[in-house]
Simulated scan of single mutants.
Amino acid sequence: MSSPLRTTLLAATADLVLILVFAAIGRDAHARGDIITGAFVTAWPFLAGGAVAWALARVWRSPLRVWPSGVCVWIGAVVIGMLLRAATGQTVVLAFIIVALISLGVFLLGYRALAALVLRLSRKQQRRA
């Protein structure tokens, strides 16, 4: 598998897993049963929002960049996710929007920032060798 394709698949998988982790943590924090399947029920609007953002922003072109890729996935997941939750009768309150913005921001931007740091340090080390 080529490196750009591998990077894209890893980034898409990381986004998916981190959105699921966000949903699972939220369900656990609110003592809602059925964390595994329940996490999918809670996560699907955010997953759909992230997928739409991937397509509209063409994130596959630079999947590990914080800007614009990470920011588009983050904002897309939250905005579209909240709109889908509202459209399907799920809870959308200001506190939840704030928690989602912060949590998904840390998750979806954080691993990209960490990846950028690791790549930068790796390139520096290769130049020295």
Score class of each variant (00 low, 15 high):
1 M>L: 14
4 P>I: 00
4 P>Q: 02
5 L>I: 13
5 L>S: 09
6 R>N: 07
6 R>K: 11
10 L>I: 15
11 A>K: 07
12 A>I: 04
14 A>P: 06
15 D>T: 07
16 L>E: 07
16 L>Q: 06
19 I>G: 04
20 L>H: 07
23 A>N: 06
28 D>M: 14
29 A>Y: 01
29 A>D: 03
29 A>F: 08
30 H>Q: 11
30 H>L: 05
31 A>F: 15
39 A>F: 08
39 A>I: 01
40 F>A: 14
43 A>D: 11
44 W>D: 06
44 W>K: 09
45 P>E: 03
47 L>I: 06
53 A>K: 01
53 A>N: 09
54 W>Y: 11
55 A>N: 02
55 A>I: 11
55 A>M: 10
57 A>E: 05
58 R>A: 08
60 W>V: 11
61 R>Q: 10
63 P>Y: 02
64 L>G: 03
64 L>T: 05
66 V>A: 13
68 P>D: 09
71 V>E: 00
72 C>R: 12
72 C>K: 05
73 V>C: 09
73 V>N: 11
74 W>C: 13
74 W>R: 14
75 I>G: 04
77 A>H: 03
77 A>E: 03
78 V>N: 09
78 V>L: 04
79 V>T: 09
80 I>D: 03
81 G>C: 00
84 L>R: 10
85 R>Y: 04
86 A>Q: 12
88 T>N: 14
89 G>S: 03
91 T>H: 06
93 V>L: 00
93 V>N: 03
93 V>Q: 01
94 L>G: 13
99 V>F: 02
99 V>Q: 00
101 L>V: 10
102 I>F: 05
105 G>S: 10
105 G>D: 08
107 F>Q: 14
107 F>Y: 15
111 Y>A: 12
112 R>H: 07
115 A>P: 08
116 A>L: 02
116 A>N: 05
117 L>P: 07
120 R>T: 12
120 R>L: 13
121 L>M: 15
122 S>A: 15
123 R>K: 12
125 Q>L: 13
129 A>V: 02
